[in-house]
């Protein structure tokens, strides 16, 4: 389908093209069953950044306020990348892990499902 416009060949800028982010790309990061953070967060990250830095830096900055955070067993965390199950290689870059501009990473922590297992 296409928009109906008052003139032919209507188009406009893709306002969130990756070129607009000064060398970074956007990455969304959400934690399933932890609705205290009501939605995923968005972060501008260099595509060359190793995935391990997400775990070391980005995830704590986003989620460390949750009491479940300290109990996370990082060996057991399951990841979803753009809706598909995913095993990140920690020393490889986001790019090489297939994390692209505006990719959504979801973190699942088996056994940790929010305050009193409530999903919050």
């Amino acid at each position: 389908m296409a928009v109906k416009a008052a003139y032919e060949n209507y188009s406009g800028p893709n306002r969130d093209a990756v070129e607009n982010f000064h060398g970074n790309q956007l990455v969304y990061l959400g934690w399933d069953e932890h609705m205290m953070f009501p939605c995923a967060g968005v972060f501008p990250l260099p595509p060359q950044m190793p995935f391990g830095a997400i775990i070391k830096e980005v995830v704590p900055s986003a989620f460390s306020l949750h009491p479940d955070f300290a109990s996370i067993d990082w060996g057991k965390v399951e990841w979803l990348l753009d809706g598909k199950s995913f095993n990140p290689t920690l020393d490889k870059s986001l790019e090489d892990n297939g994390v692209n501009h505006k990719s959504l990473i979801r973190m699942i922590t088996p056994g940790l499902n929010g305050i009193n297992n409530s999903g919050f």
């Binding site: 609705m35 009501p38 939605c39 995923a40 968005v42 986003a62 959504l104």
Partner: peptide, 29 residues
Amino acid sequence: YNPSLPQLCQTCQIPMVYTDPKNPTKRVY
């Protein structure tokens, strides 16, 4: 206070907080 900026829906521009009514701790993506 939530420290990170929210992921928004491209259309309604509301943070992506809505859940599946049948499963209200699962966000809709």
